[in-house]
Design a protein around this nucleic acid. Structure first.
Length: 832
RNA sequence: GCCGGGUUGGUGGAACGGUAGACACUGCGGCCUCAAAAGCCGUUGCUCGCAAGAGCGUGUGGGUUCGACUCCCACACCCGGCACCA
């Protein structure tokens, strides 16, 4: 074998290389962010993991993508903050502790260590000095402090209300954690319970949370913006006051919310939510028995039944009437479960002609249907299909007021609201689907709520200097869910003196939703060791908002909405000077296998550790980044980590072929290869900025191929352009394959680390092509290609095109009518 | 039903309104080898053709344009969000 042959088949030992560089990085500590650096700051945040076990393919993907951005920005000269921590409170640890008769911390911190080691092996450019865990008292002390601050502002309050209850996890859930009537975490069917619980008043911020989505829309994924808009669910309409006439002869107001006040003349009955307190208060004595039977039946029905849209309408006549404020008409009042107690006012005016639900109800109970908007469609009373579009108003007048003849919905709404407001019978209004955030949980492994309940003083906040309220030591069977928090049974912990009066009192025994912990961790990263405050406002304002937040789309409405809410509250408190925490966002897709989500039951799981052992870290990372657009799902069965490793070895091999010395002036090198190199660097920057990492990798592959050709059959290995090209490959590869890149960089005679080598300078002069391929079309069809100078004139290009043999052939017998020339790229000849 | 996003070779995917299929994977042929593996080189959208070449081709149907994967309209299907929210 000749030396040359050897260089074409040589490979490096993947695992030895990994171990070697891990030690070097440990020593050099090149990714520590300097708060006081004069460089421009860049905050690259990735959603911190929950320590459920070792890292899996999902972690590998999000981290690989995230690290491309962090490493790119560092090369570009930014001071990059790329922190890591763990969202370490939560149910899985608690359930494991019950199973294994141990403390949740055992499971939690063991897994954190495992994951931390795996991240280090994975070569992620994290700043390990800022590591945090939300279950550390040093952290949750400040979660408690924030809770108290929110409470001082009236943004954390307690109320009694029917809440979502997971019978399996034995805890309440926020609306956001109930998916299709099931517990988001365990899949059990969620039931309702009447409980007194803590809430964050996120609804105070509904409008701002909605409005600022417009600001985020250009840099946030569409699906996240859409999901949040839908979740907030703003609707515009009006409150309208009807008068109820009770059986005992008294009257009272009944206010309803409607988005179609313009159809007020079509209201033929009213419906009150069966489970609203009002319904029980106003029902007539004759109908009370029937109502109570109906209510009992309603309560028994689960959310699953309720959610079914196919279900026929049910209800009961309350035996009373109400007066329509615009025409004095008396209509019957019913109770039904299709009206929700906690939206609007819990009561509606039913306009069966123009609302499908009301029409279904009217038909089920023989109630009248009156059309007040003629849309040209058939009468809803006959078809059973409500008409909801624009049309001409009819039967809509009383006294000196009339909508009749009008054909514009917006004007109709405006006119009737004006009228209602003038007469004091209603007003324009906005409603949101968003509800307050229920934050209490009846579980142990979470942040204790720093409140003491005193018989005399009521709710008393734990004084700040007594924070944190630490969790008592409970383990194993003590943690078994029993419907109230396990903390309630820890009598020594629960029973305390009231901080205010010194009398006997009890700690609040619930813990906080873990989404509270994760609503501010990105702030803590800016000053993670600060023992005097939750975060240093100056440092937070210097680093934030996060320039990029990479993570899973499953948090589109949960974590991302809560974190936005927290940030707005903190801005109102004057603690931060921005109102949105994440300037831009990237949601990675899911790694699946053989067309399906990986799962134990399907047996299609792909083990990350095995992939890393078989192909090496770099090949796995490269495969994930090269697979396609970052937000697309990746089917691992379609991928070729072996192919990725092959490419990396090919790239590495180049570094052994370079024979010129480090520091040689590339200006004297082969111009053709230099052009490829500089164009690649130029394009790669734009591709990374626009998150087209897969294309960036493809371009790097092209550069490798071009360099290989130059070495073997072009300018040869000692040409300075070859060194320039290979050094460029090493730097570009460092975004995705840090081990291979370091190895190349060292073989090229440079000191570590390539991560700080800087982004290559682009020579603009080398971006100019000296010949371009001009395309000649006849009738829009490609007929010829011409190599021409980039500066060719339109006339010259046209002449050359028409002179071409293939073009003449295609034109045969036809007359040239028109020639479009776009020098130097294209000519289109139109004939006929 | 309402709101977003999508549909390109055998596969993953590229393509400022201007060469469709870059870059890979797979397949096929070859080199190396006693042989195999690995590696390397060539080839690979479909149809016809020995070839030169020709025709077809980006979910469907229209439109705008000299020219459309790209823009506009309608439709089908897939994915995500919301949904008895008045």
């Amino acid at each position: 074998m000749t030396d040359h042959d050897e260089s074409r088949t040589a490979t490096y030992d993947v695992h030895a290389t990994e171990e070697k560089w891990q030690q070097v990085w440990e020593k050099l500590d090149p990714f520590r962010a300097d708060d006081h650096s004069p460089r421009e700051k860049f905050y690259a945040l990735t959603m911190f993991p929950y320590p459920s076990g070792d890292l899996h393919m999902g972690h590998a993907e999000v981290t690989a993508l995230h690290d491309v951005i962090a490493r790119y920005k560092r090369l570009q000269g930014y001071e990059v903050l790329n922190p890591i921590g763990w969202d370490s409170f939560g149910l899985p640890a608690e359930n494991a502790a019950i199973r294994n008769d141990e403390h949740p911390a055992t499971f939690t911190y063991a897994n954190i260590e495992t994951q931390a080691e795996s991240f280090k092996r994975y070569g992620v450019s994290f700043d390990w000095s800022r590591r945090l865990h939300t279950s550390d008292p040093e952290y949750y002390r400040w979660t408690q402090w924030l809770f108290l601050k929110f409470r001082e502002r009236g943004l954390a309050y307690r109320k009694n209300s029917p809440v979502n209850w997971c019978p399996n996890d034995q805890t309440v859930l926020a609306n956001e954690q109930v998916v299709d009537g099931m517990c988001e975490r365990c899949g059990a069917e969620v039931t309702k319970r009447e409980l007194t619980q803590w809430y964050f008043k996120i609804t105070d911020y509904a409008q701002e949370l909605l409005d600022d989505l417009d600001v985020l829309a250009p840099t946030w994924p569409d699906r996240v913006v859409t999901a949040q808009r839908n979740w907030i669910g703003r609707s515009e309409g009006a409150y309208v006051d009807f008068t109820l006439h009770l059986a005992d002869g008294t009257d009272r107001d009944l206010t309803v919310y409607t988005t179609r006040p313009d159809t007020l003349y079509g209201a033929t009955f009213m419906v009150i939510a069966a489970d609203a307190a009002l319904a029980a208060e106003v029902v007539s004595p004759e109908q009370r028995e029937a109502y109570e039977a109906y209510l009992a039946a309603t309560r028994k029905a689960s959310d699953i039944d309720r959610l079914s849209t196919e279900r026929p309408k049910t209800g009961v006549d309350l035996g009373i009437t109400a007066t329509n404020p615009v025409n004095g008409e008396r209509v019957p009042v019913w109770a039904a479960d299709y009206v929700l107690a906690d939206y609007g006012t819990g009561a509606i005016m039913a306009v069966p002609a123009h609302d499908q639900r009301d029409l279904d109800f009217a038909r089920a109970f023989g109630l009248p249907v009156r059309r007040v908007v003629d849309t040209g469609e058939d009468n809803p009373e006959e078809t059973g299909i409500a008409t909801t579009g624009d049309g001409v108003y009819v039967n809509s007048s009383s006294g000196d007021f009339s909508l009749d003849g009008l054909s514009d919905k917006a004007t109709g709404i405006h006119r009737i609201v004006e009228r209602l407001e003038a007469e004091g019978h209603g007003k324009g209004a906005v409603n949101y689907r968003l509800r307050d955030w229920l934050l209490s949980r009846q579980r142990y492994w979470g942040c204790p709520i720093p409140i003491v309940h005193c018989e005399r003083c009521g709710e008393v906040p734990v004084p700040e200097d007594q924070l944190p309220v630490e969790l008592p030591e409970l383990r194993g069977a003590d943690l078994k869910p029993k419907g109230v928090s396990p903390l309630a049974a820890a009598t020594e912990w629960v029973n305390v003196e009231c901080p205010q009066c010194g009398g006997p009192a009890q700690r609040d025994s619930d813990t906080m939703d873990t989404f509270v912990d994760s609503s501010w961790y990105f702030l803590r990263y800016c000053s993670p060791a600060d023992e005097t405050q939750a975060f240093d406002s100056d440092l937070v304002n210097a680093w934030m908002p996060c320039d990029i937040y990479v993570g899973g789309v499953e948090h589109a409405v949960l974590h991302l909405l809560y974190a936005r809410f927290f940030t707005k509250v903190l801005a109102d408190m004057g603690l931060v000077d921005f109102r949105e925490p994440f300037a831009a966002q990237l949601n990675q897709g899911t790694v699946i296998n053989e067309g399906a989500k990986m799962s134990k039951s399907k047996g299609n799981g792909v083990n990350l550790g095995e992939q890393l052992s078989d192909f090496g870290v770099d090949a796995v990372r490269l495969t994930l980044v090269f697979a396609g657009p970052p937000e697309d799902d990746i089917d691992w069965a379609d991928m070729s980590p072996a192919g990725s490793l092959r490419f990396l070895q090919r790239g590495w091999r180049l570094s052994g072929d370079v024979t010129s010395e480090p520091g040689v002036d590339p200006a004297t090198g082969d111009v053709a290869l230099r052009k490829v190199t500089h164009k690649t660097v130029h394009d790669a920057a734009q591709l990374v900025e626009s998150h087209r990492f897969n294309v960036m990798v493809a371009r790097t592959m092209e550069l490798v191929n071009a360099t290989r050709k130059a070495i073997d059959s072009g300018c040869g290995p000692d040409d300075p352009a070859v060194r320039e090209a290979v050094e460029t490959v090493a730097i570009l590869l460092s975004l995705v394959a840090p081990y291979t890149a370091e190895e190349m960089w060292e073989r090229l005679g440079h000191q570590p680390t390539v991560a700080l080598a800087g982004w290559p300078q682009v020579d603009e002069a080398l971006l100019v092509e000296d010949s371009v391929t001009a395309v000649v079309q006849v009738q829009g069809k490609l007929r010829a290609r011409l190599e021409v100078s980039p500066g060719i004139s339109e006339a010259d290009l046209e002449a050359a095109a028409l002179a071409d043999e293939a073009v003449q052939r295609a034109l045969k017998g036809k007359q040239v009518r028109k020639v479009i020339v776009r020098a130097p790229k294209l000519v289109n000849v139109v004939a006929g």
